[in-house]
Computed example of a mutant assay.
Amino acid sequence: MEFLPFDDEAMTALFLDKITREDMERIRLFRYVSLDSIMGLLEACSIRTLQEGEILLQPSRSNTDLFLILSGKVRIHLESMDSDPLTILGVGESIGEMSVLDGKLTSAFAVADEICQLLVMDEDILWSLVHSSHAAACNLLAILTCRLRNTDRVLTKSNHLDEVYQLYGTVDALTGIHNRHWIDDALDRLCRRCDVGEIPLTVFMIDIDHFKLFNDHYGHLCGDRILHSVARILADHVRPSEPLGRYGGDEFLIVVPHVDESEADWIGQRLCQSIREAPSISVEGRDLPHPTISVGLATKKAGQTTRELLDAADQALYRAKNKGRDQFSR
């Protein structure tokens, strides 16, 4: 790091090999604040380095420090570490001010998105800064105002999503698994998360072989029994972390993160086998022809959109059908 000259020897001693005046001036809390006038307070602060993925704060914990980002980025998650980040904070922004000021427990996860360097200011130093600098007090008020507006925006968005989910529902009434609206949303979230974390993700597009002919010959009641049976078998062969949904008609979609291509191929083969070897289905004492499925696999590529990923899985599904059905294909 190239160091800029300092006017004050004490400040130079404090930040030598740690931080420059330019770094300090990028912090929102210090905007229009004379750094020389608060030198004594800055000397009492410390520097903390976070490694990528390291947790700085987590919900329901006490916190007495304000963290100011000197370099790197920090993700904020509300519900869990697996949820989409509420926001990503960068250089100059602050973390932990709400819990310091109101004395209540923290309400979110703060996690290093990359290697970060933080200036750590405890609550006594913060209150001393507010009392000694009108500009810093105004900056803190502006920061809190932004936080409150962001909270209102999140609540508004959450309420809107609740209304949408109530309108569309999330569970398919016939099969008991999730519907297309839910699985589309789950796929979007997982794609974003896998892009950020560079995690492999594979989509399985599944279709019941010759289902239209079966429906026309045996009727919709028997067709519904086949749909329900296939859905339950698929549900028994996926983990909770692998979203499954009815995508429409006799199509199903499974999203599987954290597996490489060879593992995904094994899953595709296992799904076909599970349907093929399932017990016979009967309606009113009459055994129905045993269903089979075709499966199209597509593993997400860098920069590939959700729509492009689904199209790739759909094309793979047609290849499986063209090769004779009752099998998987890429």
Rank of each mutant, 00 (worst) to 15 (best):
D152P: 02
K323C: 12
Q58R: 14
H237W: 05
C146E: 15
V111G: 06
L14N: 05
I208C: 04
A264D: 00
M98G: 00
A312I: 04
L129A: 02
R147L: 13
P59A: 11
T299P: 07
I275G: 06
V164M: 15
T145H: 13
D260R: 04
V111C: 05
V203F: 01
L221C: 12
L118T: 06
V283D: 13
Y32P: 02
P289L: 06
T299R: 15
F6W: 14
S241V: 10
M24Y: 07
Q269S: 09
P5D: 01
A137V: 03
R75A: 14
I55M: 11
R28C: 09
D314G: 02
R48W: 05
S241P: 04
V74L: 11
D209I: 09
I69Y: 00
A320G: 04
G245N: 11
G103Y: 04
E52Y: 00
D162N: 15
G285V: 07
F3D: 03
L29G: 03
E114M: 12
I125R: 03
E52G: 02
G303N: 10
D124K: 11
G53P: 01
A186H: 06
Q166T: 04
R270A: 14
T151V: 12
N63T: 07
Y165V: 11
A110W: 03
Y218L: 15
I293M: 07
R75Y: 12
G197Q: 13
H160P: 02
I69A: 01
D82F: 12
E284D: 15
P289Q: 08
L297A: 10
Y168V: 08
R225Y: 12
I226T: 08
H220R: 10
G245F: 08
E263R: 08
R189S: 11
S107W: 09
L89W: 10
S282K: 05
R325V: 08
E242Q: 14
L35D: 07
K18I: 07
L141T: 15
A173S: 12
E251C: 07
L129Q: 04
L86M: 11
A320Q: 06
S34M: 06
R319G: 00
I206L: 06
F204S: 00
A186G: 02
T64G: 13
G72E: 01
F3N: 03
L4N: 13
F204K: 00
I95W: 09
D82S: 14
S280H: 15
W127N: 05
F15G: 12
P291R: 05
C272F: 01
R61P: 00
S60N: 11
S83F: 05
N159Y: 14
D84M: 14
A135G: 01
F109V: 08
R325F: 04
L56A: 05
M11A: 12
R192S: 14
L70C: 01
R26L: 10
V256D: 02
R149G: 06
L221A: 14
P240K: 06
D250K: 09
E52A: 04
S329H: 08
K157L: 15
E242N: 13
Y218N: 11
R48A: 10
